[in-house]
Design a protein around this nucleic acid. Sequence first.
RNA 1: GGGGAUGUGAUGGAACUGGUAGACAUGCUUGGCUUAGAACCAAGUGCCGCAAGGCGUGGGGGUUCGACUCCCUCCAUCCCUACCA
Length: 799
Amino acid sequence: MLEEQYNPEKIESSIQSEWEKSNKYKATPDDREKYYCLSMFPYPSGKLHMGHVRNYTIGDVISRYKRMRGFNVFQPMGWDAFGLPAENAAIQNKVDPQSWTEQNIENMKLQLKRLGFSYDWSKELKTCDPNYYKWEQEIFSLLHKQGLVYRKKSLVNWDPVDETVLANEQVIDGKGWRSGATVELKEIDQWFLKITDYADELLTSIENLDWPENVKSMQKNWIGKSFGSEISFPLPNGEELTAFTTRIDTIYGVTYLAISPNHPISQNLANQDPQVDDFIKKCNETKMAEADMAKADKLGLKTNLKVKHPFTGIDLGVWIANYVLMDYGTGVVMGVPAHDERDHEFALKYNIDIKQVIKADEVPSSEKGELINSEKFNGLTSKNAIQDINSFLEKEKIGKGIENFRLRDWGVSRQRFWGCPIPVVYKNDEPIFLEKTDLPVELPKIKDGESPKPLSQNKDFFDIGPNESREVDTFDTFVDSSWYYARFTAADNNNKALDENSAYWLPVDLYIGGIEHAILHLLYSRFFHKAMRDIGLIEGDEPFKKLLTQGMVLKDGSKMSKSKGNTVDPQQYIDKYGADTIRLYMMFTAPPEQSLEWSETAVEGAFRFLKKLWSFTHDKKFKKVKMQGELDNSQKDFRRKIHLTIKKVTDDYENRYAFNTVIAACMELLNSTPDQIKGEISSENDQFCLNEFIASILQMLYPIAPHICETLWNNFFENSSEIENNWPTFDEDLMVTDTFELVVQINGKVRGKIEISSNLEQDEIESVAKSIKNVDDLLGDKEIKKCIYVKEKLINFVI
RNA sequence: GGGGAUGUGAUGGAACUGGUAGACAUGCUUGGCUUAGAACCAAGUGCCGCAAGGCGUGGGGGUUCGACUCCCUCCAUCCCUACCA
């Protein structure tokens, strides 16, 4: 017999040690259908935060549910262990980033275990482990062989005082966060992956994914395929400037040309003219984040260059303008102030002509329409004009219609000391990609108490002989997280990156993580999967079959973050209420995809429900009985409720991931237990209902609150069966009723309700409805114009 | 600036395919139990109104017998924006 008091700490630790002893969640391939359920692995910051608890509870609930449905479930966990916070800790506290990270992992792993997540820990991985990153380095070399790696100059945020490269988040109001120096954009050599080679495939294969529509749209828009034109504007010296535009129909409205401050021509001009140089420096004080660039005041400098309009021959001024991005199109924009808002703002500020060439009520207007002031193209619609002008450009050899992508190649070089070394050495400055036998390139160890040095200043690391040196940059941590889902399937294999188990488990059947990863991480992983496929490492086209994006955990309406000082540490609640209460609270408070507003008092409510469940169930025992004759009415109603609940809950788990309504339905079911099964059971039919009720409610709640359900189950059935072995079934026949409640409306307003027999004809129903006193009064002798009957629901009289 | 979401009682949310708005919970009020409190149990609780009834899903407009749900428009908040993860 169980204790009368619900004692979560005691039952949770005893159940957890049983799971651990029997290696219960270690997954191996067998002949059941496989289900690979993956939650996004955490950065080991030291403590779990609410977002983690939510994410991992969702993953565990689905994993446990799928096991009950007979699937062979693989649910691994690991650590996204490289990154900035470890570097910061190392600099601030002179601790070795590795031991700092290991300690954090240790602590967070305990927290995960305390929450009762059913992970297969035999496949745990850490991205900072050479046994993980040597394979990443090998894949990089293979990608190079495949022609997907190249080197080019690219901009970084440069702190001139600290002489370091800063991440966007380390630039605050244009200043370095530590030094306070004004940050500059600086061009340095970096490694790139040709993700744009896959732009079309990444775009088209989105369609086949069972992903939320909003994420699909975000990815499509990010890839940003557009059809446009390239057009050349001749310079007097015989060279030309090529602009990219999606609105070649506005060509006659061009009144200036704008080039990016980082365009080679701007750089050339800067070398000759200190004024241009100053201007470019000023433009480069804006940090490189797109949001900041877009919000920056428009700045322009008129150069002494002139180009000829290729159609009209008119001279156009060439401006260097900070709103032109070097990375999009050609880095040159044809300025059409009448039909582009940004160009309009710029033209007003610098007093440039505005020439309208599309019919519109006012200017600026970016609407398409009929062409005017455009010589022989007058009268055409934008759509036809774009076609005609593109053919004209091609005929005259001054341009062409082209496809363009917003997506840019992926710069993977980072100037960090806590990341995966890029496996390249330079002989006389020529890069050589290291082969498997030379891998891994290990990070140099840093001793506690030492200030860490950037790799570029660590001679022991980079100096490997006369005229030979190692690459000193490390990979973007997004590289680490782009293929970990695959490595999990072979994480304990020291001889191969992936093995025969990989083919069994992949792809991931369900991937669960924060909506904030909707674009970058998910797009990079999709790219990696396709690239790994093409070098023969992996099969299939996509890594994640289905995606569940959870909303943020908010406090006071905004994301919990250290900088806002509004974080709530889950640990204190786990200590106070136990894992099951926290899991139940997280699942009850909001559906997974919505943001969740943290509320302490609601945790109490979750705890209260589990106490109620405990006190109802803890002293009851299973007895094998057969139903004797007919059930009485309250038994019948209760049984109907049980089966309706099973049906609803099954649908909520299976199709909707609506765990909040699963819990609500179970609460309702528990609240509806008739008195006769609450205390001592006196009849076989009551025992029959009790058996059915306890078995189903424990199984329905087991994925969410496994410790309490398993404990109560084992006690009720005296260990004669396992809770995880099956899922309750429902019988549709039991749900049928012979009456229903008819809602009676007049002009769409509810005026009455009446319980009536299910087998009445419509005219009988009408007259019953009219006979309700209130309805009869309101209808009076008015003419009924229309009568709408919705089967077994409502009737609406229109008067 | 661009892209993607969200908006329902005092609060978190429910209403799944256009058909009873507010399930379930939190909070609050009252009562019971208790020396008292906690816990627990019972009843009530969208707003206005004595009532009949009216109003009500961010604001405004539309479609429909009927709109939280569909359309247009405006507002507010959140996420992403390529070096935070």
